[in-house]
Amino acid sequence: MEAKKVLIVFAHQSSGSFTASAKNAAVEVLTAQGCTVEVSDLYAMNFKAAATVEDIKGDIKEAENFNYLKETRLAWEEKRLSDDITKEQAKLTQADLVIFQFPMYWFSVPGILKGWFDRVLTSGFAFSQEKLYSQGVFTDKKAMLSFTTGSLESMFSPTGVNGDMNVTLWPLQNGILHYCGFQVLAPQIFWAPSSASPEVRQSMLEGWRTRLQGLREEKPLSFIPLDCFDKKCFQLKPDVQEKHANKEFGMTVGTHMGKAPPPHSQMKAGC
């Protein structure tokens, strides 16, 4: 799939930041390739992070026992979601590729971006009990994380003080993106640009520009197909477990069957 419509969800307060430079590089390179690129600048938009009853127009079905998941599902079906949510959902519907550009905060995304996930990826629109993971809603779309860290790469290794970056990325790439069906491209990680020299920062951006040239043809990361699980209990089927029983590593970071998690499975395609 060649992405022609790209959405960049950008989460940084400063237009002069390295993160903004990475976003600008993506806009420039992808536009030059003929893509239509749209940017959701969450801080500039003053995007509301908290998922509240205000996200729904009209009556609430069970106001005294408010359930955000159920109420927003109903509101989505009846076209009663707030305007800021529906605008972002429209952008996402049109996009072939989504790039989330942000600085890593506390081993995750900034709160404003987490709010985008919470509020935009509503039940029904982005997932359902029948449509999830490899059979999810957005199987025709690609998505990726592009982010900066405050720590050096060595600190995010299996023997590093922060732990394995593959483990850190699992909730974001599997639990959000793959859960909604996205084909997840390997992340673009800018290791500690704030402590790097200007020359190294420039080299990071040039590497990103080079990758962007072929980004639309990249193969996605590998995740376990939903067919490998018993849909009654969502456990790996016995024959699948048996097939992998004698292998050195587990199947994925999150589903490793008591073995060591496979190296680089959340960072490189084909691992």
Results as ranks from 00 to 15, higher is better:
106 W>V: 03
243 K>N: 01
6 V>D: 03
103 P>E: 03
148 T>M: 00
202 Q>W: 03
141 K>L: 09
206 E>T: 15
238 P>G: 13
175 G>N: 10
109 V>W: 08
222 S>M: 08
19 T>G: 13
86 T>S: 13
86 T>Y: 02
56 I>C: 11
121 L>S: 09
251 M>A: 05
256 H>S: 12
215 L>V: 13
219 K>Q: 14
107 F>M: 07
60 I>M: 02
103 P>D: 00
169 L>M: 01
112 I>N: 01
198 P>M: 06
207 G>T: 03
189 I>L: 03
194 S>E: 13
197 S>N: 05
187 P>W: 00
9 V>F: 14
147 F>K: 11
78 E>W: 00
200 V>N: 08
237 K>W: 05
75 A>K: 12
31 T>V: 05
204 M>L: 11
152 L>H: 09
260 A>I: 09
167 V>N: 02
70 K>Q: 12
261 P>Y: 06
257 M>P: 07
4 K>D: 10
98 V>M: 05
128 S>N: 07
90 A>C: 10
101 Q>S: 01
212 L>I: 03
144 M>L: 15
74 L>C: 11
243 K>R: 10
238 P>H: 09
193 P>S: 04
38 E>P: 13
29 V>P: 08
153 E>R: 10
195 S>H: 15
142 K>R: 12
25 A>R: 05
193 P>G: 07
40 S>V: 11
228 C>N: 08
68 Y>T: 04
125 F>S: 11
109 V>N: 04
